[in-house]
Simulated scan of single mutants.
Amino acid sequence: MALRLSAPFLTSRFTPSQALAPRRRTRARSFSPSADARAACFKRPYTSVLIIPTGVGAAVGGFAGDALPVARAVAGVADCVISHPNVLNAAMLYWPMPNTLYVEGYALDRFAEGSWALQPVHQNKVGLVLDSGIEEDLRLRHLQIADATRASLGLPVVEYIVTDAPLEIKTWFDPRCGKSTGSVGNSDSLLRAVDALVKHSDVNAVAVVARFPDDDPEDSDCYREGKGVDLLAGVEAIISHLVVKEFKIPSAHAPAVLPPPLSPLVCPRSAAEEG
């Protein structure tokens, strides 16, 4: 029994000459229903948040600025990167990135949970808080650094204040998990100093320099050799958290310590702390 096949669905009769004709190439067109349906006004820049916990000995970002290459790589593919001091600071080294927002950790937490919004600014008016526990010579060094940033970088460090009592910083490692932590003995003195700057000098960002205990050589050598946890990092975060939580303005912290003895064994990841 022969099967009768129906003719193909052609709009015109097919002839043998058509089989010999050169085929026309057509360019494939990509199709994305969601992208094609989305109006231009609804296309948002790609924003990435980069977080590396501080004071826990992270393999990347647990030392002095060793996460900066990661931040730069992310900034190269994202429209906007939001990160925090532990990622973007390398002691006295810093790599500015125009599409990166420098946000203190407490503020970043509130942003992530949807409680706070972030507003980029062109420039902040910075107030400087110095711990009265800093020795006179060491305090003068920090004031000279502030003057240098004003003269060479044009940073608006508009005023400084010395706390009315030593902050009495203490540092230790948490025995339960090994992270660095500590305490601020006179946190009220710190907050009074910041309050005075905000009210009388109209600053909208604060830099804090507190006198930290000089490191135990055993603890500091381990960190300097790239094998330990940064003993200072935990309390630095506590200090900046206190300021940001109370005043809702950007804050950063730097420890005032005596320079460590020279060592040929310093790891490159920790070397930025040596200056």
Rank of each mutant, 00 (worst) to 15 (best):
L143H: 02
E136P: 00
D221R: 13
R211F: 06
P217W: 12
L68P: 00
V244Q: 01
I52Q: 06
I239W: 00
A252N: 06
A64F: 04
R176E: 07
A7Y: 00
R150G: 10
A146C: 11
S30W: 08
D221C: 04
L138G: 00
S132N: 05
L88S: 14
N99W: 01
C177I: 08
V49F: 11
H200C: 06
P33A: 14
L155Q: 13
D214Q: 10
V129S: 08
L101N: 04
A21W: 01
A37V: 01
Q144W: 03
P261N: 03
N89C: 06
A148N: 13
A71H: 00
E246V: 11
H241M: 06
W116N: 05
G234P: 02
I169E: 04
N99C: 00
L93C: 04
R25A: 13
Q18D: 06
S6A: 15
G275S: 07
L138W: 01
V198W: 04
S180Y: 07
R192L: 15
P69Q: 10
F173C: 10
L265T: 01
L232N: 15
D216C: 14
G114F: 03
R224S: 12
K125A: 15
F31S: 12
L3P: 02
P261T: 05
N124K: 15
K245P: 00
W95I: 03
E273W: 09
E168M: 13
P250C: 10
G178A: 01
S251L: 05
A148W: 13
C80M: 04
G61M: 12
N89H: 05
V121C: 13
I51D: 08
G226H: 03
K245A: 11
G114H: 06
D109K: 09
P85T: 02
R72F: 03
P120F: 09
A237G: 02
S132A: 03
A28H: 11
L88V: 09
L10N: 07
A252K: 00
N124V: 13
I82Q: 12
D214T: 06
V209L: 14
V203M: 10
S115P: 00
L231T: 06
E225T: 04
F111A: 04
V81F: 08
L108P: 10
R72Y: 06
F31V: 12
G178V: 09
A90N: 02
S83W: 08
G226R: 12
Y106N: 06
R13P: 04
A237S: 03
R44E: 11
G178H: 02
A271L: 05
P217I: 11
D36C: 07
R176P: 00
P260M: 08
W95D: 09
P16W: 07
L93D: 05
A193I: 10
P16T: 10
E168A: 15
S201T: 05
A151D: 15
G226Y: 09
R27A: 11
Y106T: 01
S152K: 14
R13M: 08
G182L: 09
V77I: 14
Y102T: 03
H200R: 12
D174S: 12
G65K: 08
